[in-house]
Design a protein around this nucleic acid. Structure first.
Lengths: 154, 154
DNA sequence: TGGGATATCATGGGTTTTCATGGGATACAA
DNA sequence: TTGTATCCCATGAAAACCCATGATATCCCA
């Protein structure tokens, strides 16, 4: 599970450290790294482990073969995604197009969202956080229903 | 189930003992520690075991993918939360930002609320509980609605 | 039921390991 | 060659780990 928010340096070589908490949840024994693609919702990147993409694949498999939504998602996610392996220090090299897409220069913010994460320009993320907090407060009634719905798991 | 209220020391290294009663209910075999995030309802912290977050995730998964409330809640909880492992003595290291958010210096109060718990500045907690008692005397009906609103924990 | 023995807990301090980061060296490709 | 990607090592800071101690709570047995 991807948790918490971390801002790390993007060096001159385009390398950036993936937070160690994130690294701990992406290993599948086969590929040691992350998958990144440009969000089709804004100027930031989305990403996750290889297993996230496999889950998406399963969801798409359940859609009709000629469903235009299926094709669009395939193109938006699979075609645009890049597989970024860790170096010995737990860093990845961010392709220039992706860094430019998200306006990343010098620093970048990893945002854990459970199954997946996002990579933001720090200022852009900061600018959006106030609105997010407002929305979260507005929707906290739904969180209450989540609390009662599961009736005391812990 | 998180029960009772305990105030412990926050040392110079930012470490604080999690009440042993709380520690006994958070193990999931994989991660031995707690998850903490700033409440979006006030200057205190909320927390629970990893399984609480997993329950939140399952519930959020059932909401529509493009639901703005879903995304806001994901960001408010998953992105803001921190994973704090226990040391050998059952303590966690509280990140500075979170300690500052809740105005914690020297001491902190763990408040058990059933499925989750809260961490308060002791004086702030004392002040609030006095206010809650006052409200209870002044208006019982309102106290009842507060109880249910909190997710029916005990 | 008393009282000593034992375990647990909260806390302090020191040491080791990990992490994020920088830079150089090497392989590869345009 | 020139730019780019990959690999390896160095380093300071922060986090995790280990051991010690006093206080409290629990247990045990006469």
């Amino acid at each position: 599970m991807f948790l918490s928010t971390t801002t790390n340096n993007l060096d001159a070589k385009g390398r950036i450290s993936v937070p160690s908490d994130f690294r701990a949840v992406v290993g599948d024994g086969n590929f040691d790294g992350i998958i990144i693609w440009p969000s089709f919702d804004g100027d930031y990147l989305e990403g996750g482990g290889i297993n996230l993409l496999e889950d998406y694949q399963k969801s798409l498999d359940m859609m009709d073969y000629y469903d235009e939504g299926r094709v669009a998602l395939q193109r938006a996610i699979f075609a645009e995604s890049r597989r970024l392996p860790f170096d010995s220090g737990g860093r990845v090299t961010l392709p220039k197009e992706l860094a430019e897409y998200a306006n990343l220069n010098g620093r970048a913010t990893f945002v854990g969202l459970g199954r997946r994460f996002e990579i933001w320009n720090p200022e852009a993320h900061e600018a959006r956080s106030a609105e997010v907090r407002r929305l979260a407060r507005a929707n906290r009634g739904r969180l209450v229903s989540i609390n009662t719905q599961n009736g005391g798991g812990s």
